[in-house]
Protein backbone atom coordinates (compact mmCIF):
# COMPACT_ATOMS: atom_id res chain seq x y z
CA UNK A 1 0.00 0.00 0.00
CA UNK A 2 1.26 3.46 -0.87
CA UNK A 3 0.07 6.39 1.25
CA UNK A 4 0.63 9.97 0.11
CA UNK A 5 0.36 12.83 2.59
CA UNK A 6 0.21 16.37 1.18
CA UNK A 7 1.39 18.83 3.83
CA UNK A 8 1.62 22.59 4.13
CA UNK A 9 4.00 24.90 5.92
CA UNK A 10 2.11 27.63 7.79
CA UNK A 11 3.17 30.61 9.93
CA UNK A 12 3.70 29.65 13.56
CA UNK A 13 0.82 31.29 15.43
CA UNK A 14 2.84 31.23 18.65
CA UNK A 15 5.67 33.24 17.13
CA UNK A 16 3.35 36.10 16.20
CA UNK A 17 4.50 35.60 12.61
CA UNK A 18 1.04 35.54 11.10
CA UNK A 19 0.26 39.18 10.39
CA UNK A 20 -1.26 40.82 7.38
CA UNK A 21 0.58 43.49 5.45
CA UNK A 22 -1.80 46.49 5.47
CA UNK A 23 -0.38 47.77 2.17
CA UNK A 24 -0.67 44.66 0.01
CA UNK A 25 -3.35 42.83 1.96
CA UNK A 26 -1.37 39.59 1.86
CA UNK A 27 -0.16 37.32 4.62
CA UNK A 28 3.37 38.09 5.82
CA UNK A 29 5.32 34.86 5.83
CA UNK A 30 8.81 35.90 6.81
CA UNK A 31 8.49 34.72 10.44
CA UNK A 32 8.87 31.26 11.95
CA UNK A 33 6.84 28.50 10.36
CA UNK A 34 5.54 25.12 11.40
CA UNK A 35 3.90 22.20 9.66
CA UNK A 36 0.15 22.74 9.67
CA UNK A 37 -0.98 20.99 12.89
CA UNK A 38 -3.68 18.89 11.17
CA UNK A 39 -1.06 17.73 8.67
CA UNK A 40 1.04 16.52 11.60
CA UNK A 41 -1.92 14.29 12.47
CA UNK A 42 -2.04 13.13 8.84
CA UNK A 43 1.67 12.21 8.93
CA UNK A 44 1.22 10.40 12.24
CA UNK A 45 -1.75 8.43 10.92
CA UNK A 46 0.21 7.34 7.84
CA UNK A 47 2.99 6.10 10.15
CA UNK A 48 0.49 4.26 12.34
CA UNK A 49 -0.98 2.49 9.31
CA UNK A 50 2.57 1.49 8.35
CA UNK A 51 3.03 0.00 11.82
CA UNK A 52 -0.36 -1.68 11.68
CA UNK A 53 -0.27 -3.51 8.34
CA UNK A 54 2.59 -4.94 6.27
CA UNK A 55 4.09 -3.50 3.06
CA UNK A 56 3.18 0.15 3.45
CA UNK A 57 5.23 2.92 1.84
CA UNK A 58 4.64 6.51 2.87
CA UNK A 59 5.33 9.68 0.89
CA UNK A 60 4.93 13.34 1.79
CA UNK A 61 4.57 16.14 -0.72
CA UNK A 62 4.32 19.85 -0.32
CA UNK A 63 3.83 22.70 -2.74
CA UNK A 64 5.71 25.73 -1.59
CA UNK A 65 8.87 27.82 -1.70
CA UNK A 66 12.32 26.18 -1.33
CA UNK A 67 12.14 26.71 2.46
CA UNK A 68 9.23 24.25 2.60
CA UNK A 69 11.96 21.63 2.37
CA UNK A 70 12.12 21.96 6.16
CA UNK A 71 8.55 20.70 6.52
CA UNK A 72 9.34 17.66 4.38
CA UNK A 73 12.44 16.87 6.43
CA UNK A 74 10.40 17.00 9.61
CA UNK A 75 8.08 14.35 8.14
CA UNK A 76 11.11 12.25 7.15
CA UNK A 77 12.51 12.60 10.68
CA UNK A 78 9.22 11.29 12.05
CA UNK A 79 9.59 8.20 9.85
CA UNK A 80 8.01 8.94 6.44
CA UNK A 81 9.83 7.11 3.62
CA UNK A 82 9.91 9.59 0.70
CA UNK A 83 9.40 13.28 0.07
CA UNK A 84 8.84 15.53 -2.95
CA UNK A 85 8.96 19.30 -3.08
CA UNK A 86 6.64 20.84 -5.67
CA UNK A 87 8.30 24.14 -6.28
CA UNK A 88 8.12 26.55 -9.20
CA UNK A 89 7.49 30.27 -9.50
CA UNK A 90 4.59 29.29 -11.78
CA UNK A 91 2.68 27.94 -8.77
CA UNK A 92 2.77 31.28 -6.93
CA UNK A 93 -0.57 32.81 -6.04
CA UNK A 94 -2.52 29.53 -6.20
CA UNK A 95 -5.95 29.50 -4.62
CA UNK A 96 -7.53 26.31 -3.29
CA UNK A 97 -8.62 25.23 -6.78
CA UNK A 98 -5.19 25.65 -8.36
CA UNK A 99 -3.55 24.08 -5.30
CA UNK A 100 -5.84 21.06 -5.47
CA UNK A 101 -5.16 20.77 -9.19
CA UNK A 102 -1.38 21.01 -8.82
CA UNK A 103 -1.25 18.58 -5.90
CA UNK A 104 -3.50 16.07 -7.66
CA UNK A 105 -1.23 16.28 -10.71
CA UNK A 106 1.81 15.63 -8.52
CA UNK A 107 0.08 12.66 -6.90
CA UNK A 108 -0.73 11.22 -10.37
CA UNK A 109 2.87 11.81 -11.39
CA UNK A 110 4.24 9.97 -8.32
CA UNK A 111 1.66 7.31 -9.05
CA UNK A 112 0.63 3.99 -7.54
CA UNK A 113 -1.20 5.52 -4.63
CA UNK A 114 -3.85 3.80 -2.54
CA UNK A 115 -4.63 6.31 0.14
CA UNK A 116 -4.18 10.06 0.38
CA UNK A 117 -4.32 11.56 3.88
CA UNK A 118 -4.73 15.31 4.34
CA UNK A 119 -5.21 17.45 7.41
CA UNK A 120 -8.78 18.69 7.76
CA UNK A 121 -7.72 22.24 6.92
CA UNK A 122 -4.70 24.53 7.03
CA UNK A 123 -4.70 26.92 9.97
CA UNK A 124 -3.74 29.90 7.80
CA UNK A 125 -6.34 29.78 4.99
CA UNK A 126 -8.81 27.74 7.07
CA UNK A 127 -10.84 26.71 4.00
CA UNK A 128 -10.82 22.89 4.32
CA UNK A 129 -11.19 22.77 0.53
CA UNK A 130 -7.88 21.39 -0.71
CA UNK A 131 -8.30 17.83 0.57
CA UNK A 132 -11.73 17.23 -1.00
CA UNK A 133 -10.53 19.17 -4.08
CA UNK A 134 -7.65 16.75 -4.61
CA UNK A 135 -10.03 13.80 -4.32
CA UNK A 136 -12.42 15.29 -6.89
CA UNK A 137 -9.62 16.00 -9.33
CA UNK A 138 -8.19 12.52 -8.91
CA UNK A 139 -11.65 11.05 -9.34
CA UNK A 140 -11.55 9.10 -6.08
CA UNK A 141 -13.98 9.11 -3.16
CA UNK A 142 -13.18 10.96 0.05
CA UNK A 143 -14.33 11.27 3.65
CA UNK A 144 -13.43 14.38 5.60
CA UNK A 145 -12.95 14.98 9.36
CA UNK A 146 -11.91 11.43 10.16
CA UNK A 147 -11.28 10.89 13.86
CA UNK A 148 -10.45 7.17 13.74
CA UNK A 149 -9.56 4.47 11.25
CA UNK A 150 -11.46 1.41 12.40
CA UNK A 151 -10.32 -0.98 9.70
CA UNK A 152 -7.94 -0.80 6.82
CA UNK A 153 -7.13 -3.42 4.19
CA UNK A 154 -5.95 -3.38 0.61
CA UNK A 155 -9.40 -2.69 -0.88
CA UNK A 156 -11.41 -1.03 1.83
CA UNK A 157 -11.19 1.43 4.70
CA UNK A 158 -13.69 1.90 7.53
CA UNK A 159 -13.52 5.20 9.38
CA UNK A 160 -15.29 7.29 11.97
CA UNK A 161 -16.20 10.75 10.73
CA UNK A 162 -16.51 13.41 13.40
CA UNK A 163 -19.90 15.16 13.36
CA UNK A 164 -21.20 18.00 15.48
CA UNK A 165 -23.44 15.65 17.43
CA UNK A 166 -21.40 12.44 17.42
CA UNK A 167 -19.78 10.44 14.65
CA UNK A 168 -20.63 8.41 11.53
CA UNK A 169 -19.07 5.05 10.72
CA UNK A 170 -18.40 4.93 6.98
CA UNK A 171 -16.76 2.48 4.64
CA UNK A 172 -15.07 3.40 1.37
CA UNK A 173 -13.24 1.60 -1.41
CA UNK A 174 -9.53 2.16 -1.91
CA UNK A 175 -8.05 4.20 -3.64
CA UNK A 176 -9.50 7.11 -1.72
CA UNK A 177 -8.72 10.19 0.31
CA UNK A 178 -9.41 11.08 3.92
CA UNK A 179 -8.90 14.30 5.83
CA UNK A 180 -8.16 13.97 9.54
CA UNK A 181 -8.96 15.95 12.68
CA UNK A 182 -6.66 16.37 15.67
CA UNK A 183 -8.64 13.87 17.75
CA UNK A 184 -7.30 11.04 15.58
CA UNK A 185 -3.88 10.80 17.25
CA UNK A 186 -1.01 12.53 19.05
CA UNK A 187 1.83 13.14 16.59
CA UNK A 188 5.16 11.60 17.57
CA UNK A 189 8.34 13.63 17.97
CA UNK A 190 11.25 13.46 15.56
CA UNK A 191 13.67 10.73 16.61
CA UNK A 192 17.43 11.21 16.76
CA UNK A 193 17.96 8.60 14.06
CA UNK A 194 15.14 10.07 11.98
CA UNK A 195 16.71 13.49 12.16
CA UNK A 196 20.05 12.16 10.98
CA UNK A 197 18.36 10.36 8.10
CA UNK A 198 16.27 13.40 7.19
CA UNK A 199 19.35 15.61 7.20
CA UNK A 200 21.00 13.44 4.57
CA UNK A 201 17.92 12.63 2.45
CA UNK A 202 17.76 13.75 -1.18
CA UNK A 203 14.45 15.45 -1.84
CA UNK A 204 13.48 15.66 -5.52
CA UNK A 205 11.89 18.90 -6.73
CA UNK A 206 8.96 18.71 -9.15
CA UNK A 207 8.45 21.71 -11.42
CA UNK A 208 5.41 22.65 -13.44
CA UNK A 209 7.03 21.23 -16.57
CA UNK A 210 7.79 17.92 -14.85
CA UNK A 211 4.08 17.60 -14.22
CA UNK A 212 3.20 18.74 -17.76
CA UNK A 213 1.06 21.57 -16.47
CA UNK A 214 -0.05 24.48 -18.57
CA UNK A 215 0.68 27.91 -17.08
CA UNK A 216 -2.99 28.74 -17.61
CA UNK A 217 -4.16 26.14 -15.15
CA UNK A 218 -1.86 26.83 -12.22
CA UNK A 219 -0.73 29.64 -9.94
CA UNK A 220 -2.47 32.96 -10.18
CA UNK A 221 -3.74 32.25 -13.73
CA UNK A 222 -5.37 29.01 -12.69
CA UNK A 223 -7.04 30.55 -9.64
CA UNK A 224 -10.68 31.57 -10.08
CA UNK A 225 -10.85 33.01 -6.57
CA UNK A 226 -10.55 36.77 -6.55
CA UNK A 227 -9.47 38.23 -3.24
CA UNK A 228 -11.05 41.65 -2.90
CA UNK A 229 -9.54 42.56 0.42
CA UNK A 230 -7.80 40.89 3.34
CA UNK A 231 -7.82 42.66 6.66
CA UNK A 232 -7.32 42.05 10.33
CA UNK A 233 -10.79 42.18 11.88
CA UNK A 234 -11.15 45.15 14.21
CA UNK A 235 -10.84 44.34 17.90
CA UNK A 236 -14.26 43.72 19.33
CA UNK A 237 -15.49 46.47 21.56
CA UNK A 238 -16.88 45.47 24.96
CA UNK A 239 -20.61 44.70 24.77
CA UNK A 240 -23.29 46.51 26.64
CA UNK A 241 -23.73 45.52 30.27
CA UNK A 242 -27.21 45.81 31.72
CA UNK A 243 -27.02 46.79 35.36
CA UNK A 244 -29.72 46.91 37.98
CA UNK A 245 -32.31 44.72 39.69
CA UNK A 246 -33.28 41.40 38.14
CA UNK A 247 -36.84 42.66 37.66
CA UNK A 248 -35.60 45.46 35.40
CA UNK A 249 -32.67 43.78 33.71
CA UNK A 250 -34.43 40.65 32.48
CA UNK A 251 -37.23 42.42 30.57
CA UNK A 252 -34.66 44.88 29.18
CA UNK A 253 -32.56 41.98 27.93
CA UNK A 254 -35.59 40.29 26.39
CA UNK A 255 -36.49 43.54 24.64
CA UNK A 256 -32.94 43.83 23.21
CA UNK A 257 -32.98 40.27 21.93
CA UNK A 258 -36.29 40.93 20.19
CA UNK A 259 -35.00 44.16 18.67
CA UNK A 260 -31.93 42.36 17.35
CA UNK A 261 -34.27 39.69 15.92
CA UNK A 262 -32.38 36.95 17.72
CA UNK A 263 -35.76 35.40 18.50
Amino acid sequence: MHIIVPIKQVPDPESGAATIDPETGTLRREGASIVNPFDMNAIEEALRIKERIPDVTTTVITMGPPQADKALRLALAMGIDNAYLICDAAFAGSDTWATGYSLSSAIRYIGNFDLVICGKQAIDGDTAQVGPGIAAMLGIPHISSVRKIEEIGNDKIVVERLMEDGYDVLSMDIPCLITVVKEINEPRLESLKGKLRAKKAEIPTLKADDLNLSRDDIGQNGSPTKVIRIFTPPKREGGEILKGEVEEVVPALAQKLLELKIF
Binding site: L189, E190, S191, L192, K195, L196, K199
Partner: peptide
Protein backbone atom coordinates in the same frame (compact mmCIF):
# COMPACT_ATOMS: atom_id res chain seq x y z
CA UNK B 1 27.55 21.68 12.88
CA UNK B 2 24.15 20.82 11.37
CA UNK B 3 23.91 17.51 13.18
CA UNK B 4 24.68 19.05 16.56
CA UNK B 5 21.92 21.60 15.95
CA UNK B 6 19.43 18.89 14.95
CA UNK B 7 20.23 16.81 18.03
CA UNK B 8 19.86 19.81 20.30
CA UNK B 9 16.51 20.53 18.66
CA UNK B 10 15.28 16.96 19.19
Amino acid sequence: DDIQIEMQDA
